[in-house]
Amino acid sequence: MQKKNMQDLEQRLEQLTAGDGLALIADLFPGKAVFSTSLGQEDQVITQLIASQNLPIQIFSLDTGRLFPETLELLARTESKYKTRIKVYYPERESVESLVTDIGINGFYESVENRKSCCYVRKVEPLKRALAGNEVWVTGLRAEQSANRNSMKRIEWDEANQILKYNPLMDWSFDQMTAYIEEHKVPYNPLHDKGFISIGCAPCTRAILPGEDARAGRWWWEESKKECGLHAK
């Protein structure tokens, strides 16, 4: 997309609500916009916005093979409530077997390099397959989530995946999000009520303590920026 067209689109989206912005994206990129859901609270809001307007935006999720049972159960509940099918992508079997052979079943605890290798095999590579052939990638990112995400825009060019990335909830607060979930009776993961704010793979996620950052429960044994590579600059 040319720079001027990108700026025009950004200005239009800045004036719209999240729901209207999603409708505009669906209209401008028919059949070429997809939404990746990890079944977190933000993503559940976007699923509701897409489903309630019956927008032609394909919803997909990544099953890493190490998800919480509660997350998988929520996926089924979400499909049932919104009468929609969430397309699930899995890591390549050969890649997982090779990874486990190389670093062990829980080798990601041993080094940042090992952990990033695991994230690449189980998340990044499947994401690339899911995005292939599409023009817009809708995400549930919010600026409040981390310092890295605070610098992101409502819509931007994702160089790593060569695709437009649209973040309709970028300026939403945590309270705004939870109020929306309550008002619209959006199904959510019961782990959120137990201190699990950001939920990923079971071995890599813990509940946060009072006063801790929302991302502190992810890869808690590391001092890194708490990202898996899906949204790397």
Rank of each mutant, 00 (worst) to 15 (best):
K3V: 02
N5H: 13
M6N: 11
E10Q: 14
A18D: 04
A18M: 02
G19Q: 07
D20K: 09
L28M: 12
F29Y: 14
P30F: 13
P30A: 05
G31E: 04
K32T: 15
K32A: 14
T37H: 05
S38D: 08
G40Q: 06
D43M: 04
I50Y: 01
F60A: 10
T64C: 06
R66A: 08
R66C: 07
L67W: 02
F68Q: 00
E70K: 05
L74S: 04
E79F: 05
S80I: 08
S80P: 00
K81Y: 03
Y82T: 15
K83M: 10
R85Y: 08
V88S: 04
Y89S: 11
Y89D: 07
Y90S: 05
S95N: 05
E97G: 04
S98I: 07
L99V: 11
L99G: 05
V100A: 08
T101V: 09
S111I: 02
E113A: 10
K116W: 04
S117P: 01
S117R: 15
R122D: 06
V124P: 03
E125L: 11
E125T: 14
K128C: 01
K128T: 03
A132H: 09
V136T: 13
W137C: 04
V138S: 00
T139R: 02
G140A: 07
G140E: 03
A143K: 13
Q145F: 01
A147D: 11
A147T: 15
M152A: 12
I155W: 11
E159R: 00
N161H: 09
N161A: 00
Q162M: 01
M177T: 15
M177E: 09
E182R: 11
H184G: 03
P187E: 03
P190Y: 11
L191N: 10
L191V: 08
D193N: 12
T205L: 00
T205G: 02
I208C: 03
D213G: 09
A216K: 08
R218H: 04
R218Q: 05
W221P: 15
E222M: 14
L230M: 10
H231P: 10
A232V: 13
A232M: 10
